[in-house]
Amino acid sequence: MRRFEGRVAIVTGAGQGIGRALARGFATEGAALVVAELDAARARRVEQEIVQEAERAIGVPTDVSDEKAVTNTVETAIREFGRIDVLVNNAGIFPLSPIETMAEDEWDRVIATNLVGVFLCSRAVVPHMLTQGGGRIISLASGRAFEGAVHGAHYAASKSGIIGFTKSLALELAPHGITANVLCPGLTDTAQPRGHDLTDEEIYARGAKIPLGRIGQPDDLVGPALFLASDPARHITGQTVLVNGGSIMW
């Protein structure tokens, strides 16, 4: 039997990149997927990709920073699939601005999406996980949480914030068999690092300097995420797992 047969997973920001790979990874292992994604067309596309492989999925356009939208997505998950076993908080944005000229609304948007979104989605699934007597929450932070990010002070604030948040969540939920952990990708081959005038050549040159010799691929996160969500990882909570080819060893 597949590892997540009969289970239900919500992956936020699953319309492309790492989130899409994680959604497909969970589906391949038998989970029914809720593709919670801001961009409705992307949500629909990933839903279809999974359905075409004869797995169960539903795309639900969701802005993770919108309390009502998040409630709606979780209600949809329960209505369609009856339970929620795994939440992957993956949605994130990475604009860059030097601190001096960083606009207040850009700061607000990064914190709202990357940090408040993690709070809202976690808060919304917890009552269902409590009723079920267990569950898994995995949130994507970043190596930037440890090293800071030049021109990404808001991003680093949000990503290190996720780690502090997750430890508190883990402590609260441990008595109820719910674990909460953090995955930190390093440089990964998605749209995100390309948003800032980096050429492909520059990106792959950076990858070549990583100890394991290459940039990460979205699929590199799948094994670690499935592991943290799986039964064998039941005694792991409040932890931060770095998946980065050795670029930061913490």
Partner: peptide, 9 residues
């Protein structure tokens, strides 16, 4: 925790 990542940046 956010203050730490912010300050490093």
């Amino acid at each position: 925790a956010g203050v730490i990542g912010f300050s490093k940046s």
